[in-house]
């Protein structure tokens, strides 16, 4: 089996899951890193803000969520028959990141003073 066939699907799945995990935080947040203490918490902040004096970092968790989703999408791509897979347009691997970047820009607009 040629595992590299799964790579484009991995990339698409990773990006979508990463952004979803970030946008719907803490729904898909698997763990939290506490940089002041070097400790780890399972899950998100659990409804209580950790505050500026003891901030939590969720980025590592979002990456992990993306990795898991990417592996699942890659697995699905491997399970699809070769003739069906060849019909899927390869351009999705760049269309999806472009769309995700546009959505991300909209989500993050409040940092730049846009409501």
């Amino acid at each position: 089996m040629n595992v590299s066939r799964a790579f484009p699907a991995f990339s698409v799945g990773f990006g979508c899951a990463y952004l979803a995990s970030m946008f719907y935080h803490p729904m898909f947040t698997l763990f939290t890193y506490l940089p002041r203490t070097g400790g780890w918490l399972l899950g998100g902040p659990g409804g209580q803000e950790l505050g500026r004096s003891a901030p939590g970092m969720y980025w590592y968790s979002w990456l992990t969520t993306g990795l898991i989703a990417g592996i699942v999408c890659g697995g699905v791509a491997l399970a699809i028959p070769e003739d069906m897979r060849k019909k899927v347009w390869s351009g999705w691997v760049w269309v999806v990141p472009v769309a995700l970047t546009l959505v991300l820009t909209y989500i993050e607009r409040t940092w730049f003073g846009y409501k």
């Binding site: 790579f7 990339s11 990773f14 990006g15 990463y18 691997v93 991300l104 993050e108 940092w111």
Partner: peptide, 26 residues
């Protein structure tokens, strides 16, 4: 705020880039 937000954008864009690498290699 804009400066902190720029870093937020950076961390997400490089994450998208990391996810793109397998397709890039493929």
């Amino acid at each position: 705020s804009a400066v902190v937000g720029s870093f937020e954008m950076k961390e997400h864009l490089v994450s998208f880039g990391l996810g793109l690498l397998p397709a890039y290699w493929y």
